[in-house]
């Protein structure tokens, strides 16, 4: 399943957040998206997921694709338990209604919970979980339908290093198992190193770096260098 973004433009209140963004993600490939806070990374994912609309440009993927998104702030249904959250699309989506028996659903949900290391919290409600736990439940809910386009919005932010590694491994694993096209928004170099095949960097609406992880880390591109070295001096100015 290929995902292609072509000449994407998005404006909020006359401010151009995304200005003519184009890229392609192949099956079994993960694109990392980096950039300052407020550079439009979440906006980009939301447009791909179809919950925000572009001003112009196009998002191209096969019609029968199953798109999934793990939200930056989890976006768990707070009136449903963890179990019901993860089972939600299997139970409530019209095309899937009645396709699985209760036992099958229970098996799938438990398997996903085991994957994110959260067995035994099925009956808890999102408000009873820590931020990192919510994040992992959101991850489990996103992948429950075996998607082939997966969008992760900062999947490892706020997680301890060990859990981060676990999630990163799953991002790699899932990509292979489902042969999915993945987009990972992240600030964490560890995630980029472990889970990403190629990277784009957004700054003031433009893609200022595009290349492999090695190229990102090599420090040839001044924007990439500033980001990787976390330095205040450089071509990018945080104030804008």
């Amino acid at each position: 399943m290929t995902l292609e973004v072509k000449n994407l433009v998005k404006t909020f209140d006359k401010r151009k957040i995304l200005n003519n963004i184009s890229f392609k993600v192949e099956n079994g490939e993960t694109l990392g998206v980096i950039g300052f806070s407020g550079s439009g990374k979440s906006t980009l994912l939301k447009i791909i997921a179809g919950i925000l609309y572009e001003d112009s440009g196009s998002i191209i993927f096969p019609k029968d694709s199953e798109v999934a998104m793990a939200f930056q702030y989890s976006a768990l249904f707070d009136f449903l338990s963890v179990y019901e959250n993860i089972a939600f699309p299997l139970v409530e989506r019209k095309e899937l209604r009645g396709k699985y028996t209760q036992e099958e659903i229970s098996k799938i949900v438990h398997e996903k919970l085991r994957m994110v290391g959260l067995e035994g919290i099925e009956d808890k409600y999102p408000s009873e979980l820590s931020g990192g736990m919510q994040k992992r439940v959101g991850f489990a809910r996103a992948i429950v339908t075996n998607p082939n386009i997966i969008l992760y919005d900062e999947p490892t932010a706020g997680l301890d290093p060990v859990t981060s590694t676990m999630i990163e491994n799953y991002i790699v694993q899932l990509k292979k198992d489902l042969n999915a096209a993945c987009v990972v928004v992240t600030h964490q170099l560890s995630t980029i190193k472990r889970a990403v095949d190629k990277v784009i960097m957004l700054y003031q609406g433009d893609i200022v770096f595009r290349g492999s992880v090695e190229e990102l880390l090599s420090g040839v591109n001044p924007y990439a260098k500033q980001f990787v070295n976390a330095s205040i001096q450089g071509p990018m100015n945080i104030a804008t």
């Binding site: 998104m69 976006a75 249904f77 989506r93």
Partner: peptide, 25 residues
């Protein structure tokens, strides 16, 4: 208030991505 708070915490967006129409549900 409950639907509004779902809207501002992106629960409605999440529902749409999971392809369950919040209008129907």
């Amino acid at each position: 208030s409950e639907i509004a708070s779902m809207a501002v915490t992106e629960q409605l967006s999440a529902m749409k991505v999971l392809r369950v129409d919040p209008i129907e549900y």
